[in-house]
């Protein structure tokens, strides 16, 4: 590994800082146009709206910090933060562990690899389908499959999806079940690790565990990092899953009231877009903080080859 590190600073990389600036601008041009043309405007607009009283149908009225102070006393907001945090902290590690585990299992030459990969990916494909709501109810409902299976062992089941105590857990299962996307990213990452490194390690007599620890894992850290950052962001924004069980209400008894769902209810259900915009920016601050911490911590465990 060290030999690679020594190669990093060739004179070439210092050639022409101006030229690099220019090249970077050209490469980033489409992104700049998109950022300033499409993304920034609506974003700033929503920031502005967070300081107004805006019911969508009439012009917004400036209301100062009202929306922001209101958050302090909004019990449903606090509830939704609780729901969202517990969801993020449980479902993201579980999903990533499963995705990485199966990716490793699949990467090491298994016969029928394409078959398995497709099968494991299938649930992620139907994640957005209308059928998923019905499906999930049929699995976790009072007379659902899970209870039938439990019945075989003489265990009396319950309505997993409709009891406030367990509804959120079924959503964690749903999220873990659709682990296909991070798995595929892991697989692609694994495939990018040069075979030559393993060959060299084998010649040196390294065991497979050793190879995993000193080659696979370090070289995969950028991808693990990527999945971690993105899955956290996605978990904070979870929306569809909540619709699955509660049809958008966040029920039973607000036990699946995800942050985004609450935000959406305020904005479109109660025509309270000013407050919803403030909520969006609070979410952005929270997620941004998590991401920043993640990036800061990545210095200590993520290995880049540059």
């Amino acid at each position: 590994m060290s030999s690679i590190n020594e190669l990093r600073r060739l004179p070439g990389s210092q050639r022409g800082a101006r030229q690099q600036n220019k090249a970077a601008f050209l490469f980033l041009l489409p992104w700049f146009v998109g950022l300033f043309g499409i993304t920034i405007g609506p974003m700033l607009a929503s920031l502005y709206l967070s300081f107004t009283d805006y019911n969508l149908l009439q012009p917004p009225r400036l209301s100062g910090l009202d929306n922001w102070t209101r958050m302090l006393h909004d019990e449903r907001l606090h509830k939704s933060l609780g729901v969202t945090f517990s969801y993020v902290f449980v479902s993201v590690p579980l999903q990533l562990a499963l995705a990485l585990g199966l990716a490793l299992l699949l990467d090491k030459g298994v016969r029928g690899l394409p078959f398995y990969r497709s099968v494991f990916y299938l649930p992620s494909l139907i994640g957005g389908s209308v059928a998923i709501a019905v499906l999930w109810r049929t699995m976790f409902g009072t007379t659902g499959l899970v209870n039938e299976a439990l019945g075989l062992f003489g265990i009396q089941g319950q309505g997993w999806i409709s009891e406030p105590g367990t509804a959120l857990s079924t959503l964690v299962v749903l999220n873990v079940w659709t682990f296909g996307s991070p798995m595929v990213i892991f697989l692609a990452g694994l495939r990018q690790i040069p075979t030559s490194l393993y060959e060299a390690a084998s010649v040196d007599g390294a065991t497979r565990l050793r190879q995993f620890r000193s080659i696979t894992l370090p070289l995969l850290t950028p991808i693990i990092f990527f999945n971690l950052v993105l899955q956290i962001i996605h978990a904070f924004q979870t929306f569809t899953q909540a619709f699955v069980v509660s049809g958008g209400t966040g029920g039973p008894a607000d036990s699946t009231l995800f942050y985004s769902l609450y935000l959406y209810q305020r904005g479109f259900g109660h025509f309270d877009m000013g407050y919803a915009s403030a909520l969006a920016w609070l979410l952005l601050l929270i997620v941004g903080l998590f991401t920043a911490v993640n990036f800061w911590a990545s210095k200590y465990w993520v290995f880049y080859d540059d």
Binding site: W31, L35, I38, T39, G41, P42, M43, A45, S46, L49, L56, L230, I233, F236, Q237, F239, S260, L263, Y264, G267, F268, M273, A276, S277, L279, A280, W281, L283, L284, V287, G288, T291
Partner: peptide, 19 residues
Amino acid sequence: MLVTIMLPIHVIIVPQYVL
């Protein structure tokens, strides 16, 4: 760039629709 991933679509959809 990262921040643009983080804002929920529901609050930018109205200004974006106007655009």
